[in-house]
Write a protein that binds this DNA or RNA. Structure first.
Lengths: 261, 261
DNA sequence: ACCTTTACATAACACCGTTGTGTTTTTGAA
DNA sequence: TTCAAAAACACAACGGTGTTATGTAAAGGT
């Protein structure tokens, strides 16, 4: 027996290409033929390296959860836990807007290539809530939130923020009730709903706005090349291999307003 | 000149079939060939009657907004406007769960047949908020909500409820933090966040739960046959024309828990 | 050097939305 | 009543999708 091994660099290159296509041109650009063309290969690469298109999408979903987690873990624990909580919300929204197409896949919005979330995938998503749960407990300890179930509070923060973001990505929030305005109001409303005093909540939300630039926007976010099961392959200096059909790309990803004011 | 007119009954029959396919088998069953087969016709019917698949989807989206509006307008205006507000939320969720696939299309979740929302479509969606805005104003007048922007409050109610529903439809909310529990907690949290006293909010939310059966669950919701531009055609007694390939249908729409407990 | 196992390319299959190409049917006017 | 124009409709095709069968070339342990 003497098989022939897969090239891990090709695997990461495929993920890189797919992530770029999803980010720049949306889910309808995520086709096996398009990916193969960008990689100067045949459509078989998707099946030899991932088994199916949906598994390739799943790899990107994992990367998406990892990025979200990275943002949330960069929120510092200060003596104003309500401001920390608001900043977690800002980080969540920042990640969703920076990777809007991927966010839609992660939370059931779109399903390119027949992809569907498994229970394991969803558990990855719920795991990121642990940051919020811990922060809610600190809000309890500080006497800012009404004593209760921290995990339940975290779910309320999550669902409300998720809803605002999906409406925003669906272009449902327009002036004068644009996403930024609704988000700021929602942050205060969530803190008050959890038990905080209105004026204190407003002050903490304002404080979190100032921390956004240093704790969220500046988080080093490497490209999709370093993924799970990527190991080395980063020592290689070249970028992607300059595809044959580098067509002028229909439209270069619609510019969206950044959340951090 | 002497053209040949379209049969309005066929048009409504197509919409009926498409709505049933979407509801029972999801967006992936909404294909021109499948619709044509169910209608014992060729795929051309979709194009002669609707121009394109996306326009047929648009008709169903309009019906979806009409149903949502019908639920919301059946919430009575009582002397407990906070309970009215909570019941609006229950009606919103009830409609979303009863027409989950359609709800996903209405708010950007899925896009069968290359459908995409136009600004006019979204305006239909925003219009249903007027019920909530009016209710928020009554909450202000009753001294229950902190004085402010009724439309902004309505947006907070909307985005939070929408977020919980999309997470619920994506199977992200599981025990012990299942959708019902999160929703009840969210209702109270939203009212408190808008300025209501916690105990008063809890009482009103509980009161709204009792009103659900009579004001929401019992709303007469006719099938998709009476749609805009349907006019008569209802005088016809027959149902759909018993398609040739009434295959045993993969799975009969997953059963979901009802919100009104 | 060999031989097995696998990667890979090519082409095909079944499906999709859409669109030509005819034919059939309706319908207002002569 | 007859006629002809215009549109509905069926059929088949076109370009696209994910996936798979088939053949070939290359890699690696013996």
């Amino acid at each position: 027996m003497s098989p022939r091994r897969l090239d891990p660099q090709i695997r990461t290159a495929i993920i890189d290409i797919a992530a770029r296509l999803l980010a720049e041109e949306g889910p309808q650009a995520l086709t096996t033929r398009r990916i193969a063309a960008e990689a100067d290969a045949s459509t078989m690469v998707v099946y030899t390296y991932f088994g199916a298109m949906s598994e390739l999408v799943r790899e990107m979903v994992y990367e998406g959860f990892a990025r979200l987690q990275r943002y949330l873990t960069h929120v510092r624990r200060t003596d104003d836990p309500v401001a920390d909580m608001a900043l977690l919300g800002r980080g969540y929204r920042h990640n969703a807007l920076a990777n809007s197409h991927l966010y839609a896949v992660m939370f059931g919005g779109s399903a390119p290539g027949g992809f569907s979330l498994t229970e394991d995938d969803r558990q990855h998503g719920r795991y990121t809530l642990s940051n919020v749960v811990e922060c809610a407990e600190r809000c309890f300890a500080a006497g800012r939130f009404r004593a209760g179930d921290a995990e339940l509070v975290a779910h309320q923060m999550w669902s409300a923020t998720h809803g605002l973001i999906t409406l925003e990505l669906g272009d449902y929030l327009i002036a004068p009730y644009d996403a930024d305005r609704c988000f700021e109001a929602q942050l205060v409303g969530l803190m008050v709903g959890a038990g905080d005093d209105h004026d204190a909540a407003a002050r903490s939300v304002t404080a979190s706005r100032l921390r956004f630039a240093t704790e969220i926007a500046s988080v080093p976010m490497a490209g999709p090349e370093n993924l799970p099961s990527t190991e080395a392959a980063a020592a290689n200096g070249r970028r992607r291999p300059a595809s044959a059909l580098a067509k002028v790309s229909s439209r270069p990803a619609p510019r969206r307003a950044e959340p951090g004011d």
